[in-house]
Design a binder for these strands. Structure first.
Length: 284
DNA sequence: ACAGGCTCCTGCAGGC
DNA sequence: TGCCTGCAGGAGCCTG
């Protein structure tokens, strides 16, 4: 399931391939609701625009778009003003692929963008937990992830996020309005590396524990980005290539297996409705 | 205001 | 072998 490192990997891959390219035609094939605004409105909004840049914000992929221009003008559209955004949330099983129109279209393909370069951008999502949104910045505001960026937040700011909160630290890490981009895998992995039990009340963690947690989170996220993300179900990057960080998971989906540090069997429990994995000896 | 739980959706694993 | 059940989970929504 795509979390920050997977979304970052995809955003970088898409950016490298379609930055400066123009959307010639947009096709939206779903009648049900992976869309925040109607498929017709999104298609109309996207067509003719140049993709100025693609980046990640929390778990969202944001495609910054220029104004609608004719073909000859599009070639010099790379540095234009951002006038619209296409925001992609992958949910659990969403994939954003850059391919060519001749490649077979797989089932659950909900959107296809034909690019002037001959490439094609596809959004595929079997479980339909993903979301697509078009924003015309003349009518609306730019997209911002609701929570803080875990890779950029300072120690003091990080500690303030959890102050006075009674909920489990694991649940707090998953709350996107506090930190944007952390999901189940990296919550479990960072808590293990910080030696903190997932059920501890967020507000009761000491300052040193919170700082250990922040540093563990940064380390695990950066390391995962370098490995191209974790492929645990069907995650692939913009080229359809799997990541490798799942090979470095120390607790996630290792229930009953020995802890890599102390050999104690890894335990599983449910926190905030999510399966949660931890070492009862290493995490206090 | 805040926290916890339910729901959406499909593919796959496990059990009988 | 084949069917059925249950589980996976991000985030919006509802409830207490």
């Amino acid at each position: 399931m795509p979390e920050l490192p997977e979304v970052e990997t995809i955003a970088r891959g898409v950016n490298a391939r379609v930055r400066g390219d123009q959307i010639v035609e947009a096709w939206f094939g779903s009648h049900r609701e992976p869309f925040k605004n109607s498929p017709a409105r999104q298609a109309k909004g996207l067509e003719g625009r140049t993709i100025l840049e693609v980046h990640r914000a929390g778990k969202h992929i944001v495609c910054e778009l220029g104004s609608v221009v004719s073909g000859s003008q599009a070639a010099r559209g790379r540095d234009g003003q951002v006038e619209a955004e296409w925001i992609v949330h992958l949910g659990m099983t969403g994939r954003l692929l850059v391919t060519t129109p001749s490649n077979p279209v797989e089932v659950h393909t909900h959107a296809r963008l034909t690019m002037a370069s001959g490439r094609e951008v596809r959004f595929v999502d079997p479980r339909r937990f993903g979301r697509l949104e078009f924003r015309d910045l003349k009518k609306g505001r730019r997209f911002h992830a609701p929570g803080a960026e875990p890779l950029a937040i300072a120690a003091a700011e990080f500690a303030v996020l959890f102050r006075g909160r009674k909920l489990a630290i694991k649940a707090a890490l998953l709350n996107q309005t506090l930190l944007a981009g952390v999901g189940n895998i990296y919550a479990d992995e960072s808590l293990f590396r910080a030696g903190i039990r997932p059920r501890r009340a967020a507000g009761k963690l000491t300052r040193p524990e919170l700082e250990r947690l922040r540093l563990a989170l940064v380390e695990v996220l950066q390391r995962a980005i370098r490995r191209g993300g974790s492929s645990v179900s069907d995650y692939v990057d913009a080229d359809g290539v799997r990541g490798f960080f799942q090979l470095e998971h120390r607790v996630y989906q290792r229930t009953g297996e020995p802890c890599l540090v102390c050999r104690t069997p890894i335990r599983r429990l449910v926190v905030a409705g999510r399966s949660t994995h931890y070492c009862p000896k290493c995490q206090r």
